[in-house]
Amino acid sequence: MSEIVIRHAEPKDYDAIRQIHAQPEVYRNTLQVPHPSERMWQERLADKPGVKQLVACIDDIVVGHLAIEVPQRTRRSHVADFGICVGAEWQNRGVASALIRTMIDMCDNWLRVERIELTVFVDNAPAIAVYRKYGFEIEGTGKKYGLRDGKYVDAYYMARVK
C-alpha cells in the first residue's frame, strides 16, 4: 500500500468527503444521515473559528476525514472534540491511526488543548480499540444517544487528557 499523507482539507475536497460520508458503512457509525448534499459539505468545509479539518490521502485519493473543534468559550478553550471517518474500502489499513496521531500532535503541540473528547457507539469495537490505543478512556455511557436504523443506540463518552 502507498503512503498515507495527512493534510488540511481544502474546498476542492468537499465532494470526496461527502462521498465517504454517504457510504452506509460510514454513516451507520457516525451521526450523519444518508444522502448528504453537496451544499452541506461545502458549508462544513468553509473556514470557521476553532475548527480544523484534516484529510488522509493515498495516491492523491481522499480516503479519510477528521474534523477537530476547539470551543471558542474561554473556560473550555483547553478542550477539543473530533469526528472521524474512513472510506469503507480503506478501513483497517492504518488510515484512522494516521489521522488520530496527527490530530493529537496538533492538539498537544500547537493548539494548547489538554483534553480531547469524542463519542462512539458502544458496538463500534474497531473504533473503540483505535481510540484506546491512543490513550482515550471511557468516561461514561449515553443511553439512547443516537438513532440508527430506526433504533436508539447507546454511545460511550471517551476522552484523552494530556
Rank of each mutant, 00 (worst) to 15 (best):
1 M>D: 10
1 M>Q: 10
2 S>D: 14
3 E>A: 12
5 V>Y: 08
5 V>K: 14
6 I>F: 05
8 H>Y: 09
9 A>N: 00
9 A>M: 07
9 A>T: 08
18 R>H: 10
18 R>T: 05
18 R>N: 09
18 R>W: 07
21 H>V: 01
21 H>N: 12
21 H>T: 02
23 Q>V: 11
24 P>F: 10
24 P>Y: 11
25 E>A: 15
26 V>E: 04
26 V>S: 06
28 R>A: 02
31 L>I: 09
32 Q>C: 12
33 V>Y: 09
35 H>P: 00
36 P>K: 06
37 S>T: 15
38 E>Y: 07
40 M>V: 07
41 W>G: 03
44 R>F: 12
44 R>K: 15
44 R>D: 11
46 A>Q: 15
49 P>E: 14
50 G>S: 06
50 G>H: 06
51 V>P: 00
51 V>Q: 13
51 V>E: 13
51 V>Y: 10
52 K>F: 05
52 K>D: 08
55 V>T: 02
57 C>Q: 08
58 I>M: 15
59 D>T: 06
61 I>G: 00
61 I>T: 15
62 V>G: 05
62 V>P: 00
64 G>T: 12
64 G>E: 04
65 H>Y: 14
67 A>E: 13
68 I>K: 04
68 I>F: 05
68 I>Y: 03
70 V>Y: 01
70 V>R: 10
71 P>Y: 08
71 P>G: 01
72 Q>W: 09
72 Q>M: 13
72 Q>A: 14
73 R>K: 14
74 T>D: 13
77 S>D: 13
77 S>C: 12
78 H>N: 14
80 A>S: 11
80 A>Q: 06
81 D>H: 12
81 D>Y: 13
81 D>N: 15
81 D>M: 01
82 F>Y: 13
82 F>N: 04
84 I>Y: 01
84 I>M: 12
84 I>F: 03
85 C>T: 04
85 C>W: 00
86 V>S: 03
87 G>I: 09
87 G>E: 03
88 A>N: 08
91 Q>Y: 04
91 Q>H: 07
92 N>Q: 13
92 N>I: 04
92 N>G: 01
92 N>W: 07
93 R>Y: 12
96 A>H: 02
97 S>F: 06
98 A>W: 03
99 L>N: 01
100 I>P: 01
101 R>M: 14
104 I>Q: 06
104 I>G: 06
105 D>Y: 08
108 D>E: 15
108 D>I: 03
110 W>E: 15
111 L>R: 07
111 L>N: 08
113 V>L: 08
113 V>G: 05
114 E>H: 14
115 R>V: 13
115 R>H: 09
116 I>D: 04
116 I>N: 02
117 E>P: 01
120 V>F: 09
121 F>V: 08
121 F>T: 08
123 D>G: 03
123 D>S: 06
126 P>T: 11
126 P>E: 11
126 P>R: 08
127 A>Q: 07
129 A>S: 14
129 A>H: 11
129 A>N: 10
131 Y>W: 03
131 Y>A: 02
132 R>Y: 01
132 R>P: 10
132 R>L: 00
133 K>P: 02
135 G>E: 09
136 F>M: 09
136 F>Q: 02
138 I>E: 13
139 E>M: 05
141 T>P: 00
145 Y>M: 02
145 Y>E: 04
146 G>A: 14
146 G>N: 01
147 L>C: 03
148 R>W: 04
148 R>S: 07
150 G>Y: 10
152 Y>L: 14
153 V>Q: 11
155 A>T: 07
157 Y>Q: 09
158 M>T: 05
159 A>W: 04
159 A>R: 03
